[in-house]
């Protein structure tokens, strides 16, 4: 009689339940109408089942986004757990859509679901990938732009994890600044 070890049939629980959202740029509809919840998951196996099932970012149309956020946090500045926060923002050039976009996004998801930022992981709200003609963007959103230590930990570990060259600078912007920016660029509160 063969008894399977629990490791073979028990799913591996994640620290958090996560929700994956998809934003499709349909100008005829309002912004929030274009934001769709795809699915939620709280195990490693269910994460992969979802990830393997959906399109890679590089295959999405311009103006589309994926957002992965902790369950209960909406992927928008206005959410109570986002409004005091900000984001580490990585802007990619056009060539990087082919070479880096998809693998950077997967690595970002692995950092989130795997809680790769030690205690600072508690400050993470979610991550967003924006597919845009002028250059795609990947960002990690945190809950409080004043938590400098946690934010710097996240930025440094994330940069190391993606193997981004030292000279390539990653900037952190508060949502407040981003939402009220006058010029085209938003000032960075922190950088790594």
């Amino acid at each position: 009689q063969v008894v399977a070890s629990p490791d073979q049939y028990v799913k591996h629980p994640l620290q958090n339940r996560w929700a994956l959202w998809y934003f499709k740029n349909d100008k005829s509809k309002g912004w929030t109408e274009n934001l769709r919840l795809i699915s939620k998951f709280d195990t490693v196996e269910d994460f992969w089942a979802l990830y393997n099932h959906i399109q890679q970012p590089s295959k999405l149309g311009f103006g589309c986004d994926y957002c992965l956020f902790k369950d209960g946090i909406k992927p928008m500045w206005e959410d109570d757990r986002n409004k005091l926060g900000g984001r580490w923002l990585m802007t990619l050039n056009k060539q990087q859509r082919h070479n880096d976009l998809d693998r950077f996004w997967m690595e970002t998801l692995l950092c989130l679901v795997g809680e790769s930022f030690d205690e600072a992981s508690d400050d993470v709200c979610g991550a967003v990938v924006n597919v845009r003609p002028k250059g795609d963007k990947i960002s990690i959103w945190t809950s409080n732009c004043q938590n400098r230590d946690a934010i710097m930990t996240i930025g440094q570990l994330y940069k190391d994890r993606l193997n981004i060259p030292i000279k390539a600078m990653l900037g952190y912007q508060s949502h407040d600044d981003t939402s009220s920016k006058s010029g085209s660029t938003t000032k960075n509160m922190y950088s790594v």
């Binding site: 679901v113 795997g114 205690e119 994890r161």
Partner: peptide
């Protein structure tokens, strides 16, 4: 409290296991 952490190697192994 405790934190459930998975490193990238483990996560990638889970992806490929049946």
């Amino acid at each position: 409290g405790t934190r459930i952490i998975y490193d990238r190697k483990f996560l990638l192994e889970c992806r490929s296991s049946p």
